[in-house]
Design a protein around this nucleic acid. Structure first.
Length: 286
DNA sequence: TAAGATAAGAGGGACAT
DNA sequence: ATGTCAGTCTTATCTTA
């Protein structure tokens, strides 16, 4: 008993309504979140008619008599319209909420218009594919935004996105992976080079050192030792090495903060990069 | 003060059960 | 589906130059 609506004639399933076990409704504070943990269906959106939906039956009238065939077809048409508008409204409500969430996120993150649009497009696709049902709208919206950024090669981190989202990091990364899987998206590999100028600007590092860091990263990539390493950690480390080579003053701490990684990460990467890469070209350079 | 060392824990991928 | 394993990264604390 899952609540499908089925054509009596041919058995075609028109609409199957699944139970939604997750908290619905927006909540931005813990107190709100508590009050939103509900025990039933979301009355306002998934079942906006509170379960008392109009059903139009097509073979008999109110007294149980068979209808004439002209009446029969008229009722069929009405029934179809009734179902369609219901679906329509539900999708619209969903989108309305999702777009609200997305607007807030994009405003906080200063996301340009175009990316905002592609995030919205991704959300619509997810909704159309039925991926939102049973899941949290804000979660999918956030994941859509992150996916749009990744596909556009915009160096924004998941943490930056999560910080302004009402949902947890865990949930968003799970949903992000879901979207990748469902849409068969090949997102470009997160290239450390992308982060160089962002990190360097934040840490106040010269163009010259940036160029050098990019060279280092390209060698690292060619040697295929960057797999499994965090791109921001690599980027910050390359900048650190570059500064070191050029006698430019900086510190692990400053770079670590600018890159959003820990200084320990820089230290460890620094050691392994020196071991695996530097020895091969440090002689040529210095 | 910056950098290094070390330890404990979290989260996620690969792989087997 | 669940557990284990290796590897990465984080936080915290202590030591060293």
């Amino acid at each position: 008993m899952t609540g499908e609506i089925i054509y009596q004639n041919c058995g075609l399933v028109i609409q199957d309504t699944m139970l939604d076990k997750h908290p619905e409704w927006r909540a931005f504070t813990p107190e709100q979140r508590e009050s939103c943990k509900r025990m039933g269906l979301p009355l306002s959106f998934s079942r906006h008619d509170k379960g008392l939906s109009t059903s139009i039956f097509v073979t008999r009238d109110a007294y149980g008599r068979m209808l004439r065939s002209s009446e029969h077809y008229k009722m069929l048409r009405l029934r179809r319209l009734n179902i369609r508008t219901k679906l329509h409204r539900s999708a619209e409500r969903n989108l309305f909420q999702a777009m609200n969430v997305l607007n807030r996120l994009c405003e906080k993150l200063k996301i340009p218009r175009g990316l905002h649009e592609s995030a919205a497009f991704i959300y619509r696709k997810a909704l159309g594919k039925g991926l939102v049902r049973g899941r949290n709208i804000a979660g999918i919206a956030t994941a859509s935004l992150y996916l749009a950024l990744r596909r556009a090669n915009v160096p924004r981190t998941l943490n930056e996105i999560v910080d302004v989202s009402p949902r947890s990091r865990k949930e968003i990364s799970r949903l992000y992976r879901l979207l990748i899987f469902e849409f068969n998206y090949k997102t470009p590999i997160d290239d450390p080079v992308q982060y160089v100028s962002k990190i360097a600007t934040k840490a106040g590092i010269s163009q010259k050192a940036q160029m050098r860091a990019i060279e280092i990263l390209q060698k690292v990539r060619r040697l295929q030792i960057s797999v499994g390493k965090g791109p921001r950690g690599l980027s910050a480390t390359a900048l650190y090495i570059a500064c070191f080579e050029l006698n430019e003053k900086t510190s692990q701490k400053r770079l670590a903060e600018a890159a959003g990684v820990s200084s320990v990460t820089i230290r460890n990467l620094y050691k392994s990069l020196i071991r695996d890469v530097e020895l091969k070209f440090v002689k040529i350079q210095i």
